[in-house]
Design a protein around this nucleic acid. Structure first.
Lengths: 162, 162
DNA sequence: GTTAGCGTACTCGGATACCGGTTGTCCGAGTGGCAAAGG
DNA sequence: CCTTTGCCACTCGGACAACCGGTATCCGAGTACGCTAAC
């Protein structure tokens, strides 16, 4: 089980977008240059963020992307779900009842697969942990450790050629 | 992010192996027939369990697979890790420092990526939840809900043609 | 000098190829049991 | 009747293809800005 790398890109891009001035936009090309990523593909990932209502897009010259909501109301779970999808990693195919033996017989009715339940519980713990961390909390931690970073980042996007 | 379906197979196979008499072996073909799965591929998955020290294999006629340890000492995490691998789903590529900007500058030393940390925390919660459930506990739950299932399963494997 | 119109450059958005990995299958190596033959 | 030896069937084990989803890319639609030219 491995997660698409677009998730990492999206997380860092959202964190970066939380640094820039509200109201100003950052183009996908700028973000791609900032992280040295393939610009076209990064473009696609951010589009997923727009569809999920996490980022907003402004077309035309001077346009770009910006966060659609305050960072405090964007959780890491939101971003991961936007890029990676909502469906659970473990999908119960009910193989226990597919056998020719009919071993389970009439027990199938209402008797949930306990293995599926256990796996769902684990994924729920994962989701809960991700949902508990907002973009604002991450940003706060960053500012505590690297106080100069937000300003430097902001300046880089202002000074960089569009 | 989606998990290979072999994980589900392995989990159900291990649970089934915990039902059969200790000391007796079950062939991969029997398990495949029991769950109506492609026998060759199931074979491959169980081999991963053997490599991980979860199951033991006995070659030759009358051989087959059986659990290598008591079910109480086999966690769901062990099985998932055996099939799906140990590496974390989220892999930090350190894209924050790959940019041409040098925005992070000399801060890189010792300053861990907080996004990576958050993702690791979430995965740790997932792992912890899976590790807390042993095969014996699942078996116990099954016996409570379907008391007749273990006996029926055991009998099916005895009566089925090898 | 002012304003309307047009062209251009820039941005996002979706449709289109490429590649690695999971999925699926096959055949070979090794082992135990069975049977037959010899003592 | 017991022992030994050879053969065979059965099982695991690893090596070999096929399909699918993620990865990467390109070109088209839409928009705001700036320039030009007429009034």
């Amino acid at each position: 089980m491995k997660m698409g790398r677009g998730v990492e890109w999206a997380l860092h891009c959202c964190l970066t977008l939380s640094f820039v001035e509200p109201g100003s936009s950052v183009t996908a090309d700028q973000l791609a240059a900032f992280f040295d990523l393939p610009r076209a593909y990064l473009h696609k990932q951010i589009q997923l963020l727009v569809r999920a209502g996490i980022a907003t897009s402004v077309p035309g010259p001077g346009g770009g992307y910006s966060l659609a909501r305050p960072p405090g109301s964007i959780s890491l779970m939101d971003i991961v779900a936007a890029i990676d999808g909502e469906e659970p990693a473990f999908r119960c195919m009910e193989i226990r009842s597919r056998g020719p033996s009919g071993t389970l017989g009439d027990t199938g009715t209402g008797a949930a697969c306990l293995i599926d339940q256990a796996m769902r519980r684990a994924e729920l713990a994962w989701r809960r942990e991700l949902a508990s961390q907002s973009l604002a909390s991450i940003r706060e931690q960053v500012e505590r450790r690297l106080p100069a970073l937000p300003d430097r980042t902001r300046r880089w996007f202002i000074e960089s050629p569009r």
